[in-house]
Amino acid sequence: MERSRIAVAGASGLIGSALVRSLTADGHEVVRLVRREPRGADEVRWDPERGRVDAAGLTGCDVVVNLAGAGVGERRWTPEYKRLLRDSRVLGTAALAKAAASLPRPLRVFVNGSAIGFYGDTGDRVVDEDAPPGDGFLSALCVEWEEAAAPVTEAGVRTVFLRTGLVVARGGGAWGRLFPLFRAGLGGRLGDGRQYWSYIALHDEVAAIRHLIDGEGLSGPFNLTAPQPLTNGEITEAMARVLHRPTVFAVPAPVLRAALGEMAGDVLGSQRVVPRRLLESGFRFAFPGIDEAIRAAE
Rank of each mutant, 00 (worst) to 15 (best):
G217F: 11
L260V: 01
F222T: 09
T236M: 02
A238E: 12
R194Y: 00
L260D: 00
A184K: 14
A253W: 02
R241S: 14
I213N: 07
T247E: 12
A169D: 14
I235T: 12
E237V: 03
T225D: 09
V267W: 05
L186P: 05
L190A: 12
P252D: 05
G191N: 04
R210P: 10
N232L: 07
A169E: 06
E234I: 05
G173W: 06
D214G: 15
R245H: 08
G185W: 10
S198I: 09
G269V: 04
L268G: 03
V242Q: 09
I200H: 10
T231K: 06
F222I: 09
G233K: 07
A169M: 10
L202N: 10
G172Q: 11
A240R: 12
V167E: 10
M239Y: 02
I209V: 15
L181N: 00
L224A: 08
F179Q: 05
G193P: 00
G215L: 15
F179K: 11
V251A: 15
A207M: 13
P221C: 08
V206K: 11
H211T: 11
S219W: 05
P221V: 03
P229M: 01
R257H: 00
V206H: 10
G233D: 12
L186T: 07
A208H: 09
G261S: 04
V251C: 00
H244P: 00
G172F: 11
